[in-house]
């Protein structure tokens, strides 16, 4: 590869990583809130797909893409509430309910989404942050969707809020020890339901990005499992919202390598890179399975770390 080609690949990867990472960031932040409260929601894929469909439909009918984003968040909250309430029943398995919610959410999205596959809805416009550059590829890469920045702000807010606010403390305590939460008069079930609802909202917003920005239309093959991958991302980020940004960018870059290499005519061999984040996450899990520092980061009540 010539230096020019390497530059082209790097620029395409930068743009791709930012685009691909945004939905990852939202689902990962949502899953972080839920897992911090001591519960796991494997159903965020359903929130993502239903959010994508509803955002597109609302944007199409009202012409207001941001209204679509809100509606997607609302749909996510609904699915999160359902998951949260069902998992609060005794003897119910949260992993299985997550997978059932995933198929339920996707089913509803496909059911009501049929009429919206053809028409085109107003999309969320990107912010042209690359106008200073003469390089058209760089300008295109730096046309960044505002939701990307919203995600970063949410991550910083969550990182601060979980560490420094009363609500954050209650969520963390419920996730670490149900007994101590009860001793302080906190109702762990209510905290977990609310945390799942909040997580569902963020995952729904992530879905809105898929249909309103990139790839930017509604169809049934829109999500490639980003919602399920959220679980891996959160472990990779070790339940830290700031590290969720880095993890999302890394997972996004891994997904962007393929199209970036294609732009210079390399069309095979890159599938290995798609697997790289998962292999890395697996190694992190193996390395940290018995280390003390890592088990401090993981919420103690979480079924997957017990």
């Amino acid at each position: 590869m010539s230096p020019d080609e390497i530059l082209t690949v790097l620029i395409a990867m930068l743009g791709g990583a930012i685009r691909v990472s945004t939905p990852f960031m939202f689902v990962a932040l949502g899953e972080t809130i839920t897992e911090k409260s001591g519960r796991i929601n494997l159903g965020l894929e359903g929130n993502l797909v239903l959010g994508a469909m509803l955002a597109y439909a609302i944007s199409y009918h009202t012409g207001q893409p941001w209204l679509g984003v809100l509606a997607a968040g609302g749909a996510g909250m609904f699915l999160g509430l359902l998951h949260g309430l069902i998992c609060s029943l005794p003897r119910v398995n949260d992993i299985a309910v997550g997978i059932a919610m995933m198929s339920f959410g996707i089913g509803i999205a496909f059911f009501f989404g049929k009429p919206y596959i053809q028409p085109s809805a107003p999309r969320l416009e990107g912010l042209p942050l690359g106008t200073w550059s003469d390089n058209p590829a760089l300008r295109q890469a730096l046309e960044i969707n505002p939701l990307f920045f919203v995600g970063i702000v949410v991550a910083i807010f969550l990182w601060w809020g979980l560490a420094n606010t009363r609500t954050g403390l209650i969520v963390r305590m419920t996730g670490d020890s149900e007994a101590s939460a009860r001793a302080l008069g906190v109702n762990p079930i209510r905290v977990r339901v609310l945390a799942t609802v909040a997580g569902g909202f963020l995952a729904g917003v992530g879905g809105a990005f898929l249909s309103l920005s990139y790839p930017g239309s509604w169809n049934e093959g829109l999500s490639s499992g980003q919602g399920l991958m959220a679980v891996a991302l959160v472990i990779f980020a070790r339940w830290n919202p700031l590290r969720c940004i880095a993890a999302a960018l890394l997972f996004g870059a891994a997904g962007a390598i393929g199209p970036a290499l294609q732009s210079v005519g390399i069309s095979q061999g890159y599938y290995f890179f798609n697997a790289a984040p998962y292999i890395l996450t697996l190694f992190i899990m193996i390395a940290s399975a018995r280390s003390g520092a890592a088990s401090q980061a993981a919420p103690g009540e979480l079924s997957i770390v017990k």
Binding site: L82, I86, L89, P90, R91, V92, N93, A96, V97, I99, A100, M101, S103, F104, G105, I106, G107, I108, F110, F111, G113, K114
Partner: peptide
């Protein structure tokens, strides 16, 4: 739409898992 079967399946899954309680 053909997704009707998927909605019914998803609903059965969710309710059956809840019924474990």
């Amino acid at each position: 739409p053909d997704a009707t079967a998927a909605v019914l399946q998803g609903l059965i899954f969710v309710i059956l898992l809840a019924s474990e309680t």
